[in-house]
Every structure is written in structure tokens, then in C-alpha cells.
Design a protein around this nucleic acid. Structure first.
Lengths: 146, 146
DNA sequence: TATTGTTATACTCTATAACTATA
DNA sequence: TATAGTTATAGAGTATAACAATA
């Protein structure tokens, strides 16, 4: 049991989350022109979690399956993922990163890392990791309440 | 002088920032249908920083002035802001929240607060404030490096 | 001539709904 | 009949470029 948190703290957090849009736009501008944010997120999740079906991918991305379908089409047309038949279910295909996909993702990751390293050059490592941890928990807490 | 921060920490942070999109979408869904996120941000900034010209607003929002212009038109057409002539410069108008605008913003803030309070019900207050602080610093660090 | 702001255009993200194919 | 995925459509965010009005 804990004391009630003042509403002002939540208002402040909501404002800060809105402001983070600017950071996300800056990071998005570092992406290669043929890999916008949606497709880039597809590559990231497949790299982190391994091969999977479309429905699972949409769930991890927390966007509608129709949106995920278009982003997957994009990365498949660029040869960055393979869509193998699912032996157990003819309706599904198994999505898997190709070497080319891994290469593009490496380039994307490098650009993101460069941008963050430049922007956060004067941050102590503890603050970087603390922010990562708290953002991870925020995402989890929201997934469980919506 | 500090030790170099491993690139993996930045990669992790970039992934977490991408994931926060899901949280922002959830919060956006709580907005009233006649006040989408862009216009809502306009109201928030005018409430926080007081009356200002369009160019200043666009700067604070960190979006192009053309985008801000459309969002301002939206909130003005709903009567949520007034656009008074700038006595010193005929090209500009001074943007200012109206009582109706303050009322809408109050409703928006309440919905955001409710959503966050529900999602973060089990968070200690220190973590909520720490996340706010770090997000604020992240925004500042980016503004200064892009 | 330079600056402030508006508008047209284009691209991306997202969700809903209708549809196809398979279970 | 139910489920996985695709596609059409619509609404929102954003940036670039062309433009109008004023400094």
C-alpha cells in the first residue's frame, strides 16, 4: 500500500511524453529513405524475437494487423525478410530476417546509436540505463491496462 | 570526463523509445474526437507558456510552422483560442487560450491523468517523477543537438 | 529584400471494414 | 463457422515548396 500520487505528477508525465514526439521525429529522420519507421520496427522486432507469424508480430508492435501487413509487404519487397510457408497452417507464413535485412537493420541501428550518443554525450551511463528501464516498464504497464 | 558508454545502451534506448509509440497511441485514443493530438498539443503549450506568436509556438512544439498553422486554425475554429492582432507587427497575431479552450484542456488533462493513474497504479511516486525528469532531459538534450 | 504566416501537395502512420483463403 | 491475412478507405501527422502580406 502506498500513498496516492498527486495528479500533477501524471499531468507532467503526459506532457513529457507528448514532447518526446520531437525526439522520435529526429530519430526517424536518420532512417534511410527506403526504410521508414514502420518497416524499421518490423525488422527490429524480428531481430529481437526471431521468426514469427504476422499476427504475433502485430501483437508485439501493438498496432493493427492490417498496418503490420503493409509494413511487412514493404520489407519483403525489399528482400529484407523471407515469408516461408507455415507447414502447419496454410493461412500463415513464417516471417524471418534475411541477411540483407540484418544488414539494413545494422545500418539503422548505427544511425540511431550515433544520434543518441551525440545528443546524450554528457549523460552519465546510469541515467541512460535508468531511462531505458523506466521506458520499458512504462510500456509494460500500459500494455497490461489497455 | 566519463568512460565511453557502450553502444548497446543506446540501441536499447532507441528500441524503448520506438516502443513508447504504443503508449502515445493509447493516450491519443482518450482524446475527445474533435481535438486530435496536434491541436491538443497547441492548447497545452499555450496554457504552459502563455500567449505567443505562431512562430514561437512552432518552435516550442518542434514541428514545422506550416503544421502548426493548421493545428492553430483547428483550435481557433472551435473557439478554443483567440488570435488578436499584434500591435507591433501586422503580419503576426497573438495566440491566447480562451475560457472554452481552458475547459477543453482541463478535460483532456483529466483523461490523460486517469489513463496514467490506472496504468501506473503500482508505481512508486519516485519512479513516476524520475521518468518525467529523464524524459524532460532527453527532450532538452535532443533539441540542443539537432 | 527578408520575414511571418497560409495553403497545396505528397508521404507516412493508423484503424475500420470488407474481402479472400484456409482451418 | 471461425481465424489469418490482405486490401480499400479515411483521418491524422509531418515536411517541402509555392505563395501572400507585411516589415
Amino acid at each position: 500500500m502506498q500513498a496516492t500520487i498527486p495528479a500533477t505528477h501524471y499531468e507532467e508525465l503526459a506532457r513529457r511524453l507528448t514532447g518526446i514526439g520531437a525526439v522520435k521525429r529526429d530519430l526517424a529522420r536518420t532512417l534511410p529513405p527506403d526504410c521508414p519507421p514502420g518497416p524499421a520496427a518490423v525488422l527490429t522486432v524480428l531481430d529481437r524475437h526471431g521468426e514469427m507469424r504476422l499476427s504475433r508480430l502485430a501483437e508485439l508492435l501493438a498496432v493493427d494487423i492490417s498496418v503490420t501487413s503493409r509494413h511487412v509487404t514493404h520489407v519483403a519487397e525489399h528482400g529484407w525478410i523471407a515469408r516461408d510457408a507455415d507447414p502447419g497452417d496454410g493461412r500463415c507464413r513464417i516471417l524471418r530476417l534475411t541477411p540483407a535485412g540484418r544488414a539494413v537493420l545494422g545500418e539503422i541501428t548505427a544511425r540511431h546509436t550515433d544520434a543518441l550518443a551525440r545528443a546524450l554525450a554528457d549523460w552519465p551511463v546510469e541515467d541512460v540505463t535508468a531511462l531505458s528501464t523506466l521506458l520499458g516498464r512504462l510500456r509494460t504497464s500500459f500494455s497490461n491496462s489497455f
